[in-house]
Design a protein around this nucleic acid. Structure first.
Lengths: 144, 144
DNA sequence: ACGTTGTGTTGTAGAGTGCAACAATATCAG
DNA sequence: CTGATATTGTTGCACTCTACAACACAACGT
């Protein structure tokens, strides 16, 4: 096996292992907010004015799944749905005050956890790791 | 926000995004093998002679969940259960021929996909990325 | 021998998901 | 303008994954 194949193999294996643990880890960190819910709220914070269809496309979810998640998040008072005036089929999603609050709390707990976990990392390693992850996800979006 | 905090934030966000997509991506790549099933088979290949309890601990799953997954995989002919002679409570799990076959096929498809995705990466970047992921997962195992 | 601990199974309930069918709105061809 | 088609989102349905609780069985300690 070449060095390149070996690296690819490692990347695949480690990412798979990570993905497998992520859901349970998220549930432990913030039981009140599932990984999907957390992700949607974080996405809405980044990109104010998101449509449900965009979320479905980005996270590879069925539109019905997103529809239910959104309905649930709205009922909990975490997000608001505003009908787009230009296109009455579209609902534009926004964070509600309650959503901002719980997102902030959940993220703080996640950050605390990751800070402990990566405390021993050099700043350069951390920065490079972050860049690699961004690049990987960008590549994954192009070659799904 | 300091550079370190910014990097931590990016790592967290990108890993979350990745985790969110992993399941659907796996389902697309090998519909006959769920992400959990694939992970268990790969784990068994690496570590011949695994106990169900070890799998549960490693992947943060309930023992009942692992029990059902294992039962399903055995019924499909992908793994074998052998009672440990030294401790009759323990079932040692091994890959069956069918499991080796389907694991090989699924991994090939995953590798093909990841190869396309990371085709433009320099070997050094790839190698560093792989090392970072290994280190991250090791840290995550220590600070769960 | 008996209580405790460890390993795995089964019952139950709930969340997450995809597919198919549907309603409402928008767009485009004629 | 009108009707066909496409887009956006919801609902019904079935299935998987999952955790928790209760249990059975084996092993280990006193």
């Amino acid at each position: 096996m070449s060095a390149r194949e070996s690296s690819l193999d490692t990347v695949q294996r480690e990412l798979t292992a990570f993905a497998r643990r992520a859901r349970a880890a998220a549930a432990r960190m913030h039981p009140e907010l599932s990984l999907v819910a957390y992700t949607i709220l974080a996405h809405l914070e980044e990109q104010q004015g998101c449509r449900a269809t965009d979320l479905a496309a980005y996270y590879l979810l069925d539109k019905s799944t997103v529809s239910r998640q959104v309905a649930s998040l709205e009922q909990l008072g975490f997000i608001e749905r505003r009908v787009d005036e230009a296109d009455h089929r579209v609902q534009v999603l926004h964070l509600a005050p309650g959503g901002i609050e719980i997102l902030t709390a959940a993220r703080a707990r996640r950050q605390e956890s990751i800070q402990v976990r990566l405390a021993a990392w050099d700043p350069e390693d951390l920065e490079r790791f972050a860049r690699y992850l961004v690049r990987y996800n960008a590549d994954a979006a192009v070659h799904p």
